[in-house]
Design a protein around this nucleic acid. Structure first.
Lengths: 340, 340
DNA sequence: TTGTAAGCGTTATCAT
DNA sequence: ATGATAACGCTTACAA
């Protein structure tokens, strides 16, 4: 147990200022209901004593903590990091603070984190994706906590999600390649395990191909996680035997960077011999010798809108906000017409 | 104001289980002091009622929140993100949660964030660097909160910092280049404004050069922030007029990637015509066609050790831990002997 | 406009 | 081993 150093409290301020505790409290939270004179006197005492209100006590009394909980799969992906930063920035404008946790793509861990966050009394919860541990939604419901699923948009669950429509995005991207004449595709996919967004993107590709009766050969399909080196390996595996696909779709930014770097190392001409496209837009993709065609989602925008949506929910205000974020195809040099 | 839905509380559990509130509390926090029978009965009631303890109330009673506050300049730099993730992971093992804020390299904002964190009752605080707003240390001291400065190591402030010795790291790196015969240096520096680590690194370079009476020509010194594109521009600016330096030191990973990509675009042979080195090690640096020599700091390790140090401080345990993190020079193809 | 006093949901100190 | 009960520091009816 820590020392018993009685700290400065509201009562001390009240005593020194010669007013009641209620007045000090009001002076802090509803200044307009306190006479100017007292307000000034109290302010100076607060300053002089260096009093910092005790959040837990306030939380206990108001039943609100001013704290928002977020569980992200990882913080090291640039898009999540940007979203978190924007989320944090926007929330702090409204006086909220971010309580951050990390699930490491593990649903059980996500559940535990959510539980902990609720215990900490968060006023709302932010998650990524719509696929969660079966008990998560029950937990959130039971405690009656506003929540938002990010990086997904699903018309059927409107109002609870903010992000791009992953399926639609890759449906569009695939059709763009089909229009360029491509008929043979390779996929360097991000594993869809515990990742409904990756799954949705894969579905988008498959839907688009199915409409043209194009099938993907098993040997042209490779799955991995994340990382330039992994992208290289998977890309190489797809090209193990000929004939090669004329277009390769990559599941995320880093996989696509790896694929393009490997293609260069192998002496493949991109896009003349082969088109390579990615998902997500990180700076590197436009700076490489062969800039990479990709889908750009403004992650900061996801974060910002999530923040606004949350605040609206917490404060029971109307949601005047478009919850579907654009997923724009950015055409760069790595894609072109299919080789004749 | 939110609805008044009286929630399930400790008293409800006590009532249903037919014991006192004190016993329930004990059963939760010191199970060994409660008879097996009651413990089981209480556990089942807790489960059945779906009771989640109220953190704020607990915090009010114990004067501890189980929450650690951290203020980082940004979350989008890979090294910070990794450190935060490791920090979070390690802290959660000991039952702590991370309250995260972002200063955006703005000291005043950092101060505000620290203040807010203290108000939220954090048990300890994590900052980056040792240069803070003048009032920060007073605030922390006054509230008697354990704190750690990360990504710095300074023997003079031992026990309050965890990280690499930035000055020493670049002193070593510079000497490595000097030993390769380089005498004319260019610097693509990270601006040192509000960034004592960048300053320390710059000092390391200058100290090493000064020992050999080497001066840097003003036109060979460029300063920027972060980003591949910025690295390109600054690199190009340094090469505006001849003679060129034979070695270019870059202030961070992205600046060095930009420099190397630009050197390739300009047809400069690296390392034959020029050596280029960076600081920090991100995956891309080893995957580029010309892998980049750099200084590797294990940011996860910084995060992990910070967590352990904090927990030790909070719980008044001895610190059995090396607080200086290695900064290892990783030699790759981008550096070599100076051109004759 | 200001003061009084009853909570808010736990923990911890006493007794028993 | 268990129970009563006083904190913990603030907010907020309700009274004045």
């Amino acid at each position: 147990m820590p020392k018993a150093a009685r700290n400065i409290g509201l009562r001390d301020v009240a005593r020194v200022a010669g007013v009641s505790t209620a007045t000090v409290s009001r002076a802090m939270n509803n200044p307009e209901t306190v006479s100017e004179e007292l307000r000034a006197r109290i302010a100076s005492v607060v300053d002089h004593l260096g009093w910092v209100p005790h959040g837990a006590a306030r939380a206990l009394a108001t039943r609100r903590t001013g704290t928002i909980g977020a569980v992200f799969p990882t913080l090291t992906h640039g898009d999540f990091a940007r979203a978190i930063q924007a989320l944090q920035h926007e929330l702090s404008k409204s006086g909220y603070t971010l309580l951050l946790a990390c699930s490491e793509y593990n649903p059980k861990q996500e559940y535990e984190q959510v539980r902990k966050l609720i215990e900490r009394g968060v006023d709302a919860i932010v998650l990524v994706g719509e696929a969660h541990h079966p008990d998560v939604s029950g937990l959130i419901q039971k405690n009656n906590i506003p929540h938002v699923n990010t990086f997904v948009y699903n018309p059927e669950t409107h109002g609870t999600c903010v992000g791009p429509d992953n399926r639609k995005a890759l449906y569009k991207l695939t059709n763009y390649l089909i229009e360029l004449g491509h008929r043979s595709f390779g996929i360097v996919a991000q594993t869809a395990e515990n990742n409904d967004r990756a799954q949705a993107r894969l579905d988008g590709v498959r839907d688009a191909l199915a409409e043209k009766s194009i099938a993907i050969q098993p040997r042209h399909f490779a799955q991995g996680h994340w990382g330039i080196n992994e992208g290289r390996q998977l890309f190489r595996r797809i090209l193990e035997s000929k004939p090669w696909p004329t277009a390769v779709l990559c599941g995320n930014a880093y996989l696509s960077v790896g694929a393009v770097l490997e293609s260069q190392a192998m002496g493949i001409k991109v896009p003349e011999d082969m088109s390579i496209v990615g998902y997500d837009d990180i700076e590197m993709m436009s700076e490489l010798p062969v800039p990479i065609t990709t889908v750009r989602v403004l992650s900061d925008e996801v974060g910002r809108r999530t923040a606004r949506l949350l605040v609206a929910k917490i404060e029971n205000k109307p949601i005047g906000l478009d919850l579907e974020c654009d997923a724009e195809i950015v055409v760069r040099k790595s894609s072109g017409p299919a080789k004749a």
